[in-house]
Write a protein that binds this DNA or RNA. Structure first.
Lengths: 153, 153
DNA sequence: GAATATTTGTAGCCATGGCTACAATTTGAC
DNA sequence: GTCAAATTGTAGCCATGGCTACAAATATTC
């Protein structure tokens, strides 16, 4: 007895979908999400250090509007992954790797913001959208952005 | 006895960072991530239904290149959130809400892809980048995208 | 109709990124 | 030097989205 009488015949199934492109696309998205936090954090640390000489857990907590506990845990992970360094109760520092990623991130961020401004997006919205977009823009797209911004200037 | 002798004075701390913009930005990003899965799934269901008349868990598993268990759990959640409907062992259907979101998602996706193509990004990369970007583009930016694509045509 | 293959569900694990509550440490002020 | 305030850490909770392994249901084939 069928639980669902409106079931189709099996012949409708089993066609493999278009191509592996679909899967590859989503693998990329998942990979992006993994590095996203690292990039956001090193960028935030660099931002704080650009203003204050010292970066503390509370600074990042304020920056991201999350609890200090969340920051603590993420900082721990990023330490084991070699982006950050700190001693117990000490300030948060960028490793060489962290600095490199921070610079790359910051550059990418600026490229996206400038591009959005160039196509007429308001500064406020450009900042917000760039924050979300920047982790998902390939180098090819990024260079098109640069090209366009240069041309529009 | 200080664990960290290079500790700064408290006076360096406590300056509230620039503005609440930072936090608002990240709140947005987090909200985006919540709806991202819903949008991806209703869009995927619509895609499958456009080709096959019936959408099953396995179809989505193939689509996203994840296990059927992952799909099952997410479909459950999206059912309780009113995007999808299905009976045990039955096919997956879009609710009214699901259909609406699917259409909106699809439209947004196309807008982003077309825009990337218009600025010279290759079709392959345009598809991949759009997948990541589309959930983070505000309506303001989206309309600038449209405007540009129209003009370039 | 019985056997097999496919599909779906369930149990239970993991990592990430949220949180509150409480403990420990460090700093600043008195 | 002591005490209060600020900061950080720890314990333990939650939801999401991954997974494997195994069980149950459904469909296809013989």
């Amino acid at each position: 007895m069928s639980v669902n009488s409106a079931r189709p015949t099996r012949s409708q199934l089993g066609k493999p979908l278009k191509s592996p492109l679909q899967s590859r696309r989503h693998e990329r998205t998942r990979r992006d999400h993994q590095t996203e936090t690292a990039e956001d954090y090193v960028e935030a640390v660099a931002d704080v250090l650009a203003e204050k000489e010292i970066c503390r857990v509370v600074d990042l907590a304020r920056h991201f509007a999350v609890s200090h506990v969340t920051v603590s845990k993420i900082v721990s992970r990023l330490k084991t992954e070699g982006y950050l360094h700190s001693e117990p109760y000490g300030p948060i520092q960028l490793t060489i790797k962290g600095k490199r990623v921070a610079v790359e991130s910051k550059t990418r961020h600026k490229t996206v913001v400038d591009f959005l401004l160039a196509i007429g997006v308001s500064p406020m919205v450009a900042e917000i959208d760039a924050e979300g977009m920047e982790h998902h823009v390939s180098s090819e797209t990024l260079s098109k952005f640069e090209k366009f911004t240069r041309a529009a200037r």
